[in-house]
Amino acid sequence: MTSHRYVPTGNYRRRKATSLIAQGVMVLAAGLSVGALFAVLGFVFVQGISGLDLNLLTQTPKPPGEAGGGMANAIVGTFIVVVLACVLSLPVGVGAGIYLAEYGRTGLLAQLIRFMSDVLTGVPSVVVGLFAYTVLVLPLGHFSALAGGFALGVIMLPTVTRATEEMLRQVPDSIREAALALGFEQWKVTLRVVLPTAFNGVLTGILLAVARAAGETAPLLFTAFGNPFWNLDPTQPMAALPLQIFVYAISPYDDWHRQAWAGAFLLVALVLAVSVVARILGRRTPARF
C-alpha cells in the first residue's frame, strides 16, 4: 500500500528537527525576557519590603551617614512635580491632539506637527532636563520644582498629543454629523461630544504618560534638584522619589542602600498601579496603543 510517495522527502527529518530547535529557542527567549522581569521585580520586592518602615513614609532624610530618616518629602515632592507636569502639558497636548484629529488630518502642517511630536518622543530625558534648565532655572537663578514639572511636562507632551489624536480619530464621523445636525457649533461638537466619547482612551494615554514621567530621574537632577527638607513651594528646589533613590543608591552608606530599595519598591508600586489602572481603562475602549 505504501509507495515511495508517502515517505517524507529526504530532508524532512532535518527540517523537522530545525523547526523543533527553533521553537525551543523562541520559548527560551521568552523565558529569558520574563525571567529578567522576575529578577528585577523580585529583588525590588524582597529588598524593598524588608527595608520598608514607617519612618520612610513619615520622616525627612537624616544627614549623610546617619541611620534612619525617611522619604516623606520626596514622596510628596514627586506628587507635586507630576501635578505641575500635568497642569503644564495636558492643555497643550490635548489641544494639539484635537487640532491633529479634527482640523489637520491630512494637511502639511499637521504632518509636520505629528513628525515633530514623534521626534520629541525620542529626545533623551536628560536633554529635556538641560532644556528646562535654560528655560526656567537660569532666569530664576535657582533650581525649582516648577522647572522639574516643566521638564516632565515636555516629556509627557508628545505621548498626550498622539494619544488624544488617536482616540479622537476612533470616534466615527457619524457622531460628529449627528451633533452638527442638532445645530451645535463645531467647537462645541468637539468639546462636548467628540472628546467625551473618547474620554476613556485619552485618559489611558494620559495615565501611561504620567506613569512614565513619575519614574523619571535624569530631567530632575538639575531642575527640581532635590531637597533634604520639607518644601511645598514650587519655586524652590524639591525632593522627588526617583532622585532620592539615585542619591541613596550611589552613596556609601548601608542604611541609605536599604532606603533606596524601599523607595524603589514604592516607586515601582506607584508606577505599576498607574499603568494597571490605565490598562483597565484602556480595555474598555476598542483601541489599543
Binding site: 525576557s33 522581569l37 526617583p242 533613590i245 516607586l267 508606577v271
Partner: peptide
C-alpha cells in the same frame, strides 16, 4: 506573558540602575 513583558517597560530607569548596581 505579553502583560509581563509590557510591565518590564514600565519599570523606571533608576530602579534598573539600582538593580544593576547591586
Amino acid at each position: 506573558i505579553s502583560y509581563l513583558v509590557e510591565l518590564l517597560a514600565a519599570i523606571p530607569s533608576v530602579v534598573y540602575g539600582l538593580w544593576g548596581l547591586f
